[in-house]
Design a protein around this nucleic acid. Structure first.
Lengths: 170, 170
DNA sequence: TGGTTTGTATTGCATAATGCAAATATGCCT
DNA sequence: AGGCATATTTGCATTATGCAATACAAACCA
């Protein structure tokens, strides 16, 4: 089922339609990127689902944390994170350990198996992207970097407010 | 993570390490894009799940088709597509109709409700992206379009082979 | 033409992902 | 102590998915 009502946005300023061409270009590139990510993941995954992989990614990049915090990063409620941890722990990808400083929370940590799984998938994805980039004319690469950075910067603001802390994982 | 000793990875053609910087830029932009898509969807969704929405998108862009074909576009097996159709039909988003020319298959068509739902979400996503673009310096926009098109073109080949026909939906 | 093969839709069965609500254990503050 | 907020868990329900088996229909082949 769907999640909570995501703030019906009436505060949206009328956009002055800055060339549909740009939007289309972004949308198209977006599809390719998602597709590449999905494939890279599938190549390593095999036994992991996407949500499970995302959980491992969060632990790898942010370090050990409790279940509630983990759920927040994935944008799921604690009970969901709970059961995912159950399964991943059973699969040997992570461990639960009592937090010495706070007896009501437990720390979820990545096992070496879980860590290497994440590394593999990440490496794979970077390789796939690198291959695409390699197929581009050299002269275009610098432009791509600058363009994407500018785009990311422009989109960074609203992201920080409306999607704060949620790790995409892809 | 650059790829030095390719001793272990024989299936990956040696990439001339085109600056990790480029890969990072792409990866970062990718996160933003996925995030934007997720938000746009959530704003309209409310009652639809992402897989359901993707099914509607396929029908909207490719027209009526049978369950097996529909499943192929979404990369799920017929039984999964079957039950998704059950639910979406119950929700009034699509209809099943016997195919006059072939009695063993049925045609799934979008209802007007389903169609308008897709349009809304798409519109929303374009608006969000347009807003980000609008926040970019004008001088950078043309460069973004060219860079993304080049990137998409470069990635188009392998995509056509290894991910043929699967609609991302995002 | 009749039997075999292939293509489609469906249903049974099992697991994962999710959300909501409730129960229980802690931590904290007054 | 009492009360409130926080964390983990578990019960319950729905959706998404894959695999296997069933029932038909269309295509093919001898």
């Amino acid at each position: 089922m769907p999640k909570r009502a995501p703030a019906t946005d009436d505060t949206v300023p009328p956009v002055s339609d800055p060339a549909d061409e740009v939007v289309t270009a972004v949308l198209t590139a977006s599809r390719l990127l998602v597709s590449v990510s999905a494939r890279s993941l599938a190549a390593v995954e095999e036994t992991l689902t996407l949500p499970q992989f995302r959980m491992l990614v969060v632990l790898e990049s942010r370090g050990a944390m409790n279940i509630s915090r983990l759920g927040e990063h994935l944008d799921v409620i604690p009970s969901t994170a709970m059961r995912m941890v159950d399964r991943l722990a059973a699969a040997g990808m992570l461990d639960r350990a009592p937090n010495p400083g706070n007896r009501r929370e437990i720390l979820i940590t990545l096992t070496s198996t879980g860590r290497s799984t994440v590394r593999q998938a990440t490496e794979r994805r970077r390789t796939e992207i690198a291959r695409i980039v390699a197929a581009m004319p050299r002269s275009q690469r610098a432009g791509l970097v600058k363009a994407l950075q500018t785009f990311t910067d422009a989109g960074g603001e609203p992201l920080a407010h409306r999607n704060a802390g949620v790790d995409v994982g892809w």
